[in-house]
């Protein structure tokens, strides 16, 4: 074993389309399967899959469809699951407000983005007006 920690390595990567409401279920199920296989406990599995569900729904409802990339990582001591959600929708007009929570639309509680952020260790949003939104989340095993 090297004495220094090495950068996280990708162990697998797959992309799923989000074009219909049923696709949200598929993304969530696949995220759960990966997390369970890597030894995430029930709380971590629920956190990751719920965040996946929120973000996949955002792609479908607000982004007019898109895709999710699911990646298995290892940093040498822990396993991680990274999920990237991409859409080519209008972008998030008021990102700060959306991240604060309660930025509700007719079909949601407005807690999707802010809620997902609280469930994972790493969270990044890149949104551009008229071009789309990309949200990246990563959850790691505890030990």
């Amino acid at each position: 074993m090297p004495a220094v920690a090495f950068a996280s390595q990708t162990m697998s990567k797959e992309t799923l389309a989000i074009e219909r409401e049923e696709d949200i279920v598929q993304v969530r199920k696949r995220a759960r399967a990966l997390a369970q296989a890597r030894g995430f406990d029930a709380f971590a599995c629920a956190a990751l899959t719920t965040a996946a569900s929120e973000l996949a729904r955002n792609v479908w409802v607000h982004g007019g469809g898109g895709e999710a990339t699911l990646e298995e990582l290892s940093d040498g001591t822990r396993f991680g699951i990274r999920l990237v959600f991409r859409d080519h929708g209008p972008g998030i007009a008021d990102l700060e407000r959306a991240l604060r929570g309660g930025y509700s639309t007719a079909r949601s509680l407005g807690l999707g983005l802010s809620g997902a952020r609280r469930l994972v260790e790493d969270f990044e949003v890149d949104t551009r007006s008229g071009e789309g939104t990309c949200v990246t989340i990563t959850k790691w095993t505890r030990f």
Binding site: C45, A46, A47, T50, R118
Partner: peptide
């Protein structure tokens, strides 16, 4: 409601 579901919902602010 399962324990992990309750924890997740509250952590999300709901």
């Amino acid at each position: 409601m399962r324990p992990e579901v309750a924890a997740t919902l509250v952590r999300m602010g709901y």
